[in-house]
Every structure is written in structure tokens, then in C-alpha cells.
Nucleic acid binder design. Structure first.
Lengths: 246, 246
DNA sequence: CGAAAAGTTGATCTACATCAACGTGCGTGG
DNA sequence: CCACGCACGTTGATGTAGATCAACTTTTCG
């Protein structure tokens, strides 16, 4: 199921990090050095299963992954998406049950990180430490936004808000051909992210399309009216960019 | 609004840490040493406001705090509760806009942590590093559980699940007189945590009481039927204790 | 004691779920 | 190349959990 390939060019991770914390070439190099060879995983397959042991941190180098949990009667909730450059399991470097499952949406390339190497690297480079802190903080902020979406927004707002989040995250790693990007999610997968039924997800997307807010077809989406979408979703970019230095 | 007092005895933080990672007295001591004097905050007051700058990590030494976000039309979502021994803002040690607001529910004691001191301490003590990693991981797991609650559970399930989470978290720091503990939350505050209206929160609690699952009055709660409550909430302790070593 | 905050209850409304049927594109095997 | 199957999307009809509105009671607290 996993096959080996060679690492690719300038990584999404480096790109993402440099948004808020420009790093020297030595730090970038060190970061690449602690990553294993890239391994490939086909689309629609499990990478990690909730409750099973997992080893150590990974970087997603290309493709889309989602993390999810399920209730014993089969209901499923997607907890978040991993996009290229995203890290997972930074703190899990002692074997213990994974709190979530991880599955690929597309073909995916993953690099493993040595927890020990990372640790000693961070102790040596304050700049890298700051960069990692920023990324972890960002992950938590995204989770918190997700909580607000699910707890206090209606279907249209949730949808608009999520699409804007993905738009910004993908843009940060150069994956948006403005304002057009790949959205490799079925409507049911979207609904499992947004806490809706598949049917209602369909009607909601349909409404957003009819109103000219988005243009979504065959797993590609265009943000047709960014301003109106932001208004609808009560979306504040700043929270997602996290750039402003007070 | 803030007044100074002297630090208290064996801290909830030390207690919480030692659940999964027993530390030597030197580590415990070092941990106390990087905390500032305790400062007190009265009940029902703001500790931090979303979007404002905040300084550095804090430990909650006593009392209850909640973190929350609001939409521009006034809707409010509580993102989580901080209980004694909980950390906040570990990664925020460069001034930047806070992603959430923080308010006290009860009178509260807080100690500030020096980010730099913490950092160098962690580089020196692998045991402490592991302990902190475990706590951060636990925070994230709780957030993910919250996402599942809001996304895929109904009102009764959400309520039961949250009460069980609080029960376990409080028990870990010795604040449960089994199975009876303080729950300093109004029904509206609970509803803002669980994504419900105040009215429906009332009816849900009332139903759980009528069915003999809980006994809640004047901000004290007794888990009357732990097993039935766990069943209702599809609650898996292990996820919250995080002790099992694969 | 009085006022404000919190809790309770009933009536009504609605966003979303559920059920069911059907359409459409696409890959696979005959 | 067609046919079949299957995943995915679409649409209508109907059901329901929970929101909203409004009144009232009880508790808390200055």
C-alpha cells in the first residue's frame, strides 16, 4: 500500500513556515534533514486508525488528508483537514492510542519526522522553535474556529466559513490559482465535516451556487464573490493569517 | 481588579502532570520556580480579550475559567473550560492577537510563566518535555471531542458527554467528592458551550434529572448513574485519561 | 426587602434530518 | 463498444429536534 519515491522540490512546509517566520537556509536545511524519505499513499485509504498506536510526527508533503472520529453507532465527524505542509502528531512521540483516524482523500505523500532529532533541533534553534510554536498555535486556532462553526453557525454560514478557511490555507502554500482551487471532497465528506446531513449539504451548496457566491463543479471550486462570502460567514482573515504583530 | 496573594500548597498542575508522567522532585521544583506569584481575579471578569495582545503562558491554580469566541451579531460559543492545573497560551509567547477571550466563572488564581525560562527548562529536562507534550496533546484531544459533540451529538448526548468529561478532569486534580462536584455554570453558560439555546438546555437538564441520571442543584452536581450516562454519551474514558501505553 | 439574575414552562415556528426516488457520470468486465 | 454497477449528486415530501417568544417563578445578592 505504501511505496517509496524521492522527495520533491521546495516543500510546502518550508513555504508555510516562512509566512510568519522567515528562516535562514540553515534552519530550512535542518528541517529537511530530519524528515524521512517521502512515502506515497493512494487516495481513499487509511493512514492511521483511532485507538491504534502511532509512532511519530509526520509532514504532509502533497495531497489532502482528513482526520476523523466516529461514534459507536457509525456517525462520523471529520475533525479537520491536513493540507500540504501541515504537521500531525508532533506530541505523540511516545507510543499511545491515536485520538483520531487519518485517511487520504487524494493520493498523498508523507514524510516521517524523527521526534528525537526534532527535539534537539528545536533546542538549538530558537527561530525554528518560534516557527513551530506558530504552526501549532495556528492548528489550535483552526480547531477553535471549527468549534464555533459547529456550535453557533447555520448551514450556509458553516459552508461559507469552511470554504474561506480552505481558500486561505491553500493560498498560503501556493495551491490556489486565484480564485480557483481543487476541492477533492464529496458532498457527504463535506457534510461530515460540517455536522450536516448529505442531503442538506447538497441543498446548501446549491443555494450558494444559485446566488453566485461560489462556483463548484467536479471537485474544483471558484470563489465567485469573496466579499459577500466573507460577510455571510462573518470571516475575519486576520485570525487565519495570524501575521499581525500586535 | 487583580490583587496579589501568596502561592498555595501542592499545585493542581503538579498533580495533573503526575497522572501520566511521574516527575522527580527536582523537575517539580523547577516547574514551580518558573511561575510568577499567584494573582487573583474575581468571579465573572475578563482575563483576556479576543484580538488583544497577550503576553505569555499562564497556569490556572484555582477556580474555573472559560475561553470563548463571539460572532459579530453577538452569538457566543464557549470553546472550552480551564480547570485548576490547566495551562493556557503555551505557544503565544510572542505578542500577538489572542484567538479567544478568557473569562473567570469563579474567583480565580493565576500564575504567569516565563516563556523563556520554560523553554530552556524543557531543553534540559526530557521528562518535563514529555509531560508538557502529554498535556498539550490532551488539550487537543479535548477540543476534538468537543467538535464531535457539537457536530454529531444531540442535546442529551452532548450534555451527558460534557458532564462526564468535566467529572474526569476534575477527578484527576482531586476536585471530585465522588461522585459529587461543583459545577459553577449557569444553564445559559452551559448552553453556550454546547451550542444550544438556554431554553433547550433547561429542558435537557430537566430530562436527565427526571430520569435519574444526574442530580444538579445550586451549582453542585452528582453523577447519579455513571454507567447509564456513559452509555448515553458513548463515552470512552480511555480517550480522556490517556494512560494506556499501547 | 427589593431588584436583578437565573430557572421553568407552554405555544409556536423553522432549520435541518430522514426517507425515498431518480438522474448522471464513469470505470470495469464481458 | 456496450452494459451494468456503483458512487455521487439532485429533488420532493414529510418528520422532528431544537429555536424562539413570552410569561411566570424562584433564587441570589446587595
Amino acid at each position: 500500500m505504501h511505496t517509496r519515491t524521492t522527495p520533491s522540490g521546495p516543500s510546502a512546509l518550508a513555504r508555510k513556515i516562512s509566512i510568519a517566520n522567515p528562516l535562514g537556509p540553515d534552519d530550512i536545511g535542518a528541517l529537511e534533514a530530519i524528515q524521512s524519505e517521502t512515502r506515497s499513499v493512494p487516495a481513499k485509504s487509511d493512514i492511521l486508525r483511532e485507538g491504534r498506536a502511532f509512532d511519530g510526527p509526520i509532514v504532509l508533503r502533497s495531497g489532502w488528508v482528513y482526520s476523523w472520529k466516529s461514534l459507536s453507532d457509525g456517525r462520523r465527524q471529520i475533525v479537520g483537514f491536513l493540507l500540504p505542509g501541515d504537521l500531525f502528531g508532533l506530541f505523540g512521540h511516545f507510543p499511545k492510542p491515536a485520538p483520531v483516524s487519518l485517511s487520504s482523500l487524494t493520493p498523498v505523500e508523507i514524510a516521517d519526522i524523527s521526534a528525537d532529532a526534532l527535539n534537539s533541533l528545536l533546542c538549538r534553534s530558537p527561530a525554528l522553535t518560534a516557527a513551530f510554536a506558530w504552526m501549532i498555535e495556528r492548528d489550535m486556532t483552526e480547531l477553535q474556529e471549527h468549534v464555533v462553526r459547529l456550535g453557533r453557525m447555520n448551514a450556509r454560514e458553516r459552508t461559507a466559513h469552511l470554504l474561506l478557511e480552505l481558500y486561505h490555507r491553500l493560498r498560503a502554500v501556493g495551491l490556489v490559482g486565484d480564485p480557483h482551487f481543487r476541492l477533492p471532497l464529496s458532498q457527504v465528506e463535506l457534510s461530515d465535516m460540517l455536522g450536516l446531513s448529505g442531503v442538506h449539504m447538497n441543498r446548501t451548496l446549491r443555494a450558494l451556487r444559485r446566488e453566485g457566491l461560489i462556483d463548484l463543479q467536479r471537485r474544483w471550486i471558484t470563489i465567485a464573490d469573496l466579499d459577500r462570502l466573507k460577510l455571510l460567514a462573518d470571516f475575519r482573515e486576520q485570525a487565519f493569517l495570524g501575521l499581525r504583530q500586535s
